[in-house]
């Protein structure tokens, strides 16, 4: 071993920013591990960032379907008890959420 390790592909502040975007609370230890692991994975993935893809269109769907449309005809909705039955916090027949600041 030469004692050289490549610079991480992703820095700590990016890890924290991404975790916030994804609404994941990571402990400081988790952040550190995540930084190493993501850097490792991105190291493998990074090959794609240098390939010549000029003029190659993106593939969003592998199937050639278009215009899959539904007639505007109502279907039965769920009984309210069913809509709410898995909800952890029911308030006034609605889904409760904590305050938002």
């Amino acid at each position: 071993m030469l004692g050289y390790s490549p610079p991480p592909m992703i820095d700590e502040s990016t890890v924290r920013h991404v975790a916030r975007l994804a609404r994941l609370r990571l402990s400081p230890e988790e952040e550190q591990v995540m930084q190493q692991e993501l850097s490792g994975i991105l190291g493998h993935i990074d090959a794609i960032t240098s390939m010549d893809l000029d003029g190659v269109p993106p593939t969003t769907h592998v199937i050639a379907l278009e215009n899959v449309l539904r007639a505007d005809v109502p279907r039965d909705s769920l009984p309210r008890e069913e809509a709410l039955r898995e909800a952890p916090d029911v308030v006034d027949d609605s889904f409760g959420v904590p305050r938002m600041d």
Binding site: L24, I48, T59
Partner: peptide, 30 residues
């Protein structure tokens, strides 16, 4: 799961989309 959510959020994030997600979709075409 957290690892993949992080990886995917990163790949779609502003500033990285073209480099990762955009290129991956073109590679998919190849």
């Amino acid at each position: 799961v957290k690892r993949r959510i992080m990886l995917g959020t990163f790949a779609l994030a502003s500033g990285y989309y073209d480099q990762y997600y955009g290129r991956a979709q073109r590679l998919r075409t190849l």
